[in-house]
Simulated scan of single mutants.
Amino acid sequence: MSDPAPNEDARHAAKMAKKKAARDKIMATKEGEKGLIIVHTGPGKGKSSSGFGMILRCIAHEMPSAVVQFIKGAWQTGERTLIEENFPDLCQFYAMGEGFTWETQDKARDIAAAQKGWEKAKELIRDPEIKMVLLDEINIALRYDYLDIAEVVDFLQTEKPPMTHVVLTGRNAKEELIEIADLVTEMTLIKHPFRSGVKGQKGVEF
């Protein structure tokens, strides 16, 4: 009985060659570059983690970048420690928040912190030397109307330098922000250990 493997290998190679040709054809039409507005939202875990992953890519490519944290400022997270201790020349880091809104229980203070963070964010985004700005958890500040969504949208559309990437994270992203974004990813929650009584752990949550 003959071995069918050679025929299977040939069919697989032909299939992959066809896929590659189709992919190459698509890629040939993609020539432009632009600074992107990127939104990570949804109830699932990974929004900030993904944003910091892109910041680390920028650092690896020696592209100046910056982070403004709107909520988790009271936490000494692993990514903050890594960046501040090892890459301060490539990534500016500003922790502007004082914790989650249910921890501060002071709306006026939360609004003031969010406004201060937004002013710093605008300063960083306006700097054409900075190639990516991560606005971590800004969607929470927008959700509670601590910031004016119309002002944020207008700024991103009119003042962001053409080649600057801006990443905005946090659940419940406003529709106005989603509308102007170039890339929107929604993290879907399927399972989370917190629901089984497991607390947030170092290296996973922070």
Score class of each variant (00 low, 15 high):
residue 71 I to W: 00
residue 26 I to N: 08
residue 17 A to H: 05
residue 71 I to S: 07
residue 136 D to F: 02
residue 76 Q to Y: 02
residue 33 E to C: 10
residue 51 G to S: 08
residue 203 G to I: 01
residue 14 A to Q: 14
residue 81 T to C: 07
residue 77 T to P: 01
residue 184 V to R: 08
residue 116 K to I: 00
residue 88 P to I: 05
residue 91 C to E: 05
residue 65 S to R: 10
residue 11 R to F: 08
residue 109 R to L: 13
residue 97 G to V: 00
residue 206 F to R: 02
residue 2 S to T: 12
residue 163 M to E: 15
residue 58 C to P: 01
residue 199 K to L: 15
residue 165 H to S: 10
residue 152 V to S: 02
residue 21 A to D: 15
residue 64 P to S: 07
residue 74 A to Y: 06
residue 12 H to F: 11
residue 2 S to Q: 14
residue 141 A to C: 15
residue 188 T to Q: 12
residue 55 I to Q: 04
residue 114 A to F: 11
residue 142 L to T: 02
residue 58 C to I: 02
residue 157 Q to P: 07
residue 165 H to W: 10
residue 75 W to A: 13
residue 80 R to E: 09
residue 66 A to F: 04
residue 15 K to I: 04
residue 69 Q to D: 12
residue 149 I to A: 03
residue 83 I to W: 02
residue 43 P to F: 10
residue 88 P to N: 02
residue 33 E to P: 00
residue 196 S to W: 08
residue 124 L to C: 05
residue 145 D to W: 01
residue 115 Q to L: 13
residue 105 Q to W: 05
residue 15 K to A: 12
residue 97 G to S: 03
residue 103 E to P: 03
residue 120 K to N: 00
residue 86 N to R: 14
residue 132 M to Y: 04
residue 167 V to Y: 04
residue 19 K to C: 12
residue 73 G to F: 12
residue 178 I to Y: 04
residue 66 A to T: 09
residue 16 M to E: 15
residue 139 N to T: 05
residue 137 E to R: 01
residue 187 M to G: 03
residue 54 M to F: 01
residue 36 L to T: 10
residue 137 E to S: 00
residue 47 K to M: 06
residue 47 K to H: 02
residue 107 K to N: 10
residue 194 F to E: 10
residue 178 I to T: 11
residue 51 G to F: 05
residue 142 L to I: 07
residue 190 I to Y: 15
residue 194 F to K: 12
residue 73 G to Y: 09
residue 197 G to C: 09
residue 3 D to P: 09
residue 91 C to V: 07
residue 131 K to S: 07
residue 197 G to D: 07
residue 206 F to V: 04
residue 180 I to W: 01
residue 205 E to C: 08
residue 124 L to F: 03
residue 83 I to C: 01
residue 51 G to Q: 03
residue 67 V to H: 09
residue 18 K to P: 00
residue 25 K to W: 06
residue 10 A to S: 15
residue 115 Q to W: 05
residue 125 I to P: 03
residue 31 E to M: 11
residue 136 D to Q: 07
residue 109 R to G: 11
residue 59 I to E: 07
residue 25 K to R: 11
residue 169 T to M: 01
residue 184 V to G: 10
residue 149 I to N: 03
residue 119 E to Q: 14
residue 14 A to M: 07
residue 23 R to C: 06
residue 33 E to H: 11
residue 118 W to I: 01
residue 162 P to T: 09
residue 156 L to C: 06
residue 187 M to T: 08
residue 183 L to I: 15
residue 87 F to S: 07
residue 54 M to A: 02
residue 124 L to R: 00
residue 173 A to G: 08
residue 154 D to L: 09
residue 14 A to F: 10
residue 156 L to Y: 12
residue 86 N to S: 13
residue 112 A to M: 06
residue 172 N to R: 15
residue 82 L to A: 15
residue 129 E to I: 00
residue 164 T to Q: 15
residue 181 A to R: 00
residue 57 R to V: 06
residue 206 F to N: 05
residue 61 H to K: 14
residue 67 V to Y: 10
residue 48 S to Q: 08
residue 93 F to H: 11
residue 185 T to S: 15
residue 24 D to R: 10
residue 122 K to R: 15
residue 191 K to A: 09
residue 27 M to Q: 13
residue 44 G to Q: 03
residue 202 K to R: 13
residue 47 K to Q: 06
